[in-house]
Amino acid sequence: MSVSEKELVHIADLSSLELKKEEIQDYLENFQEIIDFSNVINNAPVEDLDITIGINESKNRFRKDEVKEFEDTDALLFNGQGIQQNMYKLPKVVQ
């Protein structure tokens, strides 16, 4: 299965990544290489097996519904840019 440039750009787009024109060829080659490499699993004898969900098969780890306020919300906002009225200022988002 060979991957097209269009497909690579679509996947990059889904990943919110932008590839420069001069990068695309390199990325495409690497992408194709790892896909080819991964195709080894096509022949794996796994048809009758279940998928693994949680390697330790634990269940029901629930938290009690009790309020614990985080002590330092300023530290949370510290790494943001352009904080205004204690909110993150962004260009207008059309909803």
């Binding site: 996947i11 699993i41 096509n42 796994v46 048809e47 097996l49 998928i51 693994t52 390697i55």
Partner: peptide
């Protein structure tokens, strides 16, 4: 992504069971 999930991700999770 849509169209490849079963062939790759799901298969790999089955292989995970196999390897275990």
């Amino acid at each position: 992504s849509s169209g490849y999930y079963d062939a790759y991700y799901k298969k790999a999770q089955k292989l995970r069971t196999y390897i275990s």
